[in-house]
Structures are given as structure tokens and as C-alpha cells.
Write a protein that binds this DNA or RNA. Structure first.
Length: 277
DNA sequence: AGGGAAGCCTGCGTGC
DNA sequence: TGCACGCAGGCTTCCC
């Protein structure tokens, strides 16, 4: 499931191939996956650059008349971009963008088995036209995410579990189930604890742990637990470093106690009953 | 108001 | 072998 490190890895993997390329045709193969909120444009669209905000991938576009647009993608569970150099169409391809780069023609396919993901098109390069993006919390790897801002988030959501607060995109952008569980393990905090009961010292540990797992995740090109691959079809390797996610019942890497599985904030949650208090 | 839960989706693993 | 069922989970919407 693509979280911040996976979306960042997709962005990096597609940047060289797509920067400066032009979209010469947009084919909707399944209705409703691409939501066009623009007031119109004239093809071709030049891809100026790829950016990321939380779990959203952003394409800054300029149409043939110089008008700025933005294409926004959210993969949810199983969405992915796939570069198709031949005319083959793999199953669950919902949007096909015909691309020309340096005289070469290929397709950028949006493929999504469960069809939870969406693409949006807006006028201007301002991703905040998208209401949910406008409400996102700070980027956890930016200066805006500090020990202080995390403390403020935990205080504001004092009644929710600490895991629910980490998953709340309005508090921190880009954390999902895998990296939330991993960060809580590293910080020694039980996921079901109330946010308001996390001490200042634990908050500092959690802040560091979140930064660490996200940076490690990016460094390992993401977590390929089920079927995640980057924009060029390559799996990541962070799954080799997971301490709790997907390890229910297995011994804790630190104390050998069998890991527990519970349900927190509607999500399957794994933790070590001895290391996490 | 704010938090919990249902609903959206399909593939896959399990049990009968 | 085949079928029914449960589970995976990010986000929106609904409900308490």
C-alpha cells in the first residue's frame, strides 16, 4: 500500500522518463477514475515536473497555449503507474496517457486492481485546489514537522489513540498503516494509547522514529509487501527491515516476545506487548 | 464536535 | 476441485 516512501519512490523513478515529455492523448478506459475539474485545455500537455504531497503524486503541466494545469494521482491501495513501451494493455488499466519524449512514443498507464485510486485534473499548478490536499498536515520530512508540531497534534487529538493521530492526514501527511506501526514500535509506544497520554519524552522519541522509518523506507525504495512496485516495475526492499508489520505472532526482534495483533482505528495493528508500553 | 464504522473494490488464502 | 467467506486498507460519508 503506497504510503509516503512508496509515492516518493514512484516520483523519483518516473522523473527522468517524464520530465519534459508531452501528453498527446488521454484515454479513459474506465469511467470515473479520472476526474477532470479543469475548464478545458488543448493537447499536447508538457510535463514540467513531478512533485509529491503526502501520498499524492503531482504532475505540473502546461498546455499548448501556455495554460498551467496539474494532474494529481492518489494510489490508495493498489494503484500504480506503468510505463508501457508496446501496445499491450494489462488488466485493470483505467487511464492511458499517450506520451512523446525525444521522438519516442510510449504510454503511461494508470493500473489499479481495486479501483480505489483516483486521478484529478485542475487548472493551475496549485495542488491546494484539491480540497483534501489543502487540508493536509505538514510533510513529516520537512522543517514544518517538528517535535513541537507533533506535540501539538497529540494534544489536539488527545482523545484518539496515538495510532489514529498518526494516520490522520490532517495532522501529518503521508503516514499509513505500515509506517505508523513501525514508528510506534521504535518509539516504544502502544498504538492504543490515548494521544493525550504520550509524554514529552515519548513524543521526542516518536518524532525521531517517524523520521527514521520514512527515510529508511525511501532509502530502500519502499516496502513491497504485496504488490507494490515503483514506476519502472521495480520492488522495494524495506520489508526486510520491518519489525512488526506483517509479523503477527512472530518473536519481537528485540525481546523475542510474540508480537500481538489488535484492531486500532479500524486497522490491523501489530505491536510488541513487552517493548511497547 | 469529533470519533468510530460502513462502504467502496478485487484477489487471494483458508476451510469445508 | 470448487465454492463461500473473510481479509487486506486509504479515504469519504454517514451516524452516534
Amino acid at each position: 500500500m503506497p504510503e509516503l516512501p512508496e509515492v516518493e519512490t514512484v516520483r523519483r523513478s518516473l522523473t527522468d522518463t517524464l520530465s519534459g515529455a508531452t501528453i498527446v492523448a488521454i484515454e479513459e478506459r474506465f469511467p470515473g477514475v479520472l476526474i477532470d475539474e479543469s475548464e478545458g485545455y488543448t493537447l499536447p500537455l508538457t510535463i514540467e515536473r513531478l512533485r509529491r504531497r503526502g501520498k499524492y503524486l503531482l504532475f505540473d503541466l502546461i498546455d499548448v497555449e501556455g495554460k498551467a494545469l496539474i494532474l494529481i494521482a492518489h494510489f490508495r491501495m493498489t494503484g500504480k503507474f506503468y510505463i508501457e513501451h508496446h501496445n499491450h494493455v494489462q488488466p485493470h488499466t483505467h487511464v492511458r496517457l499517450k506520451i512523446i519524449k525525444d521522438g519516442n512514443t510510449f504510454h503511461l498507464d494508470y493500473v489499479d486492481v481495486r479501483r480505489f485510486g483516483r486521478l484529478w485534473l485542475y487548472d493551475s499548478h496549485d495542488e491546494n485546489r484539491h480540497k483534501t490536499i489543502a487540508g493536509l498536515g505538514p510533510e513529516p520530512l520537512s522543517e514544518a514537522f517538528s517535535e513541537e508540531s507533533l506535540r501539538f497534534s497529540l494534544k489536539r487529538r488527545h482523545g484518539s489513540t496515538v495510532k489514529a493521530t498518526l494516520l490522520n492526514q490532517e495532522e501529518i501527511a503521508g503516514i499509513g498503516n505500515i509506517y505508523a506501526d513501525e514508528a510506534l514500535f521504535r518509539a516504544g509506544i502502544r498504538p492504543q494509547r490515548r494521544s493525550g497520554r504520550v509524554t514529552k519524552k515519548e513524543t521526542a522519541k516518536l518524532h525521531l522514529a517517524l523520521r527514521d522509518v520514512l527515510e529508511l523506507g525511501i532509502g530502500h525504495r519502499g516496502t513491497s509487501f504485496r504488490d507494490y512496485v515503483d514506476g519502472l516495475g521495480r520492488p522495494g526492499s524495506f520489508q526486510q527491515l520491518l519489525n512488526v508489520y506483517g509479523r503477527s505472532g512472530e518473536p519481537c526482534h528485540v525481546c523475542q516476545t510474540p508480537l500481538k495483533t489488535i484492531r486500532v482505528a479500524g486497522r490491523t495493528t501489530r505491536y510488541c506487548p513487552r517493548c511497547q508500553r
